[in-house]
Design a protein around this nucleic acid. Structure first.
Length: 316
DNA sequence: AAACAGTGCAACCGCTCTGAC
DNA sequence: TGTCAGAGCGGTTGCACTGTT
């Protein structure tokens, strides 16, 4: 079915483009415009296949190409769009002027994907996954305490909470048991993955919070349930983030003002009024370091805010 | 200084989609 | 309606560069 012949089968050149080749391609397209890539290389005097020419032009030679590091806003847009569109790189690129699908794809695979994995987020589904979370780092965090673990309950499976509580007690009592628990964790994780997916997309959060909390609180005994009543909902996401940062090589205890303000701002809200917009106020700094970005990502962990005016019909 | 490992990215491969005939 | 060629797309590869030992 219409597959174009491979370059090497036709004796055409492959590999990196030389400046001379670039110049020929640019000059030809400036005179005749892009299109008809099959005949273009011959007419332009290039020993390349049409596909190679098209790729070179669309990804690197086009005058409107924007080079350089991705801004934080661009990263956020990529993540948000990816959560909705998946690996539709061209569709994502269409919303990022000057960026190509290839560039976005590479950036996702080399930067964003790894970062999400470190944060325990499945880069495919954007769901929080305990098996992806670096629990050993989490447990070493000075931020780790019972309250934070309880906050995790709202985001994780009850089995996961039980594991975490068990790990915490072991952590302080017997390091060997801790190691054993961590190994058992792999088994638990595989079981968790077979259960209903723990997806926290924003439009589902309200339901999760209003529906899951009562059930899970009831499943707890005595004071535990009361603690949940006091700590659930609007602080859960905040505390979840507070529990994570050590694995990013940063200590948020010295710089968690955004989270503190979140606490104070949201303290008057009940769980049903939880707005994830309130988590979005983390200051964003272009050109920040990877660690700084990780911290900011923490606050934007579960943010899948859809840009205003975005018509998804156009993507499908 | 050399060897090795890890990382990032340009480019290619091969499949699918689309439109012309 | 079926076939074909061209174009586009996502996945993958290979190499250059950088950091570590």
């Amino acid at each position: 079915m219409g597959r174009s012949p491979c370059c090497d089968k036709n004796g055409l050149k492959k590999g990196p483009w030389t400046p001379e080749e670039d110049m020929k391609l640019i000059q030809y397209i400036q005179m005749h415009g892009p299109g008809n890539w099959r005949t273009l290389p011959k007419n332009a005097g290039l020993q390349r296949c049409g596909k190679s020419c098209r790729l070179r032009w669309t990804n690197y030679l086009r005058p409107d190409i924007r080079r350089g590091r991705f801004s934080f806003e661009e990263e956020e847009t990529i993540i948000q769009l990816h959560s909705v569109l998946g690996n539709k790189w061209s569709a994502i690129a269409a919303r990022l002027p000057g960026r190509t699908d290839n560039e976005i794809k590479n950036y996702w695979n080399t930067h964003i994907r790894k970062r999400l994995l470190r944060m325990g987020i499945d880069p495919v589904t954007h769901a929080t996954r305990l098996d992806l979370l670096d629990l050993s780092s989490l447990l070493n965090s000075p931020q780790l305490n019972l309250t934070n673990l309880l906050h995790l309950q709202t985001l994780l499976n009850p089995e996961a909470l039980r594991l975490a509580l068990s790990l915490l007690s072991s952590h302080t009592e017997n390091p060997d048991i801790l190691l054993q628990k961590l190994q058992e964790n792999h088994l638990l994780n595989s079981q968790l993955q077979n259960q209903a997916p723990i997806v926290q997309r924003p439009n589902q959060f309200d339901n999760i919070i209003t529906q899951q909390i009562p059930n899970q609180s009831q499943s707890l005994q005595g004071d535990m349930g009361q603690i949940f009543q006091n700590n659930l909902s609007d602080q859960c996401l905040n505390s979840f983030c507070n529990g994570i940062p050590d694995q990013f090589g940063a200590d948020l205890s010295s710089d968690n003002s955004s989270f503190q303000s979140l606490n104070s701002n949201s303290s008057n809200n009940n769980s049903q009024n939880l707005s994830f917009d309130s988590v979005l106020s983390t200051p964003l700094i272009n050109g920040s370091t990877e660690d700084e970005r990780d911290q900011s990502f923490c606050s934007n962990l579960l943010r899948f805010e859809i840009p205003e005016g975005l018509d998804f019909d156009n993507f499908m």
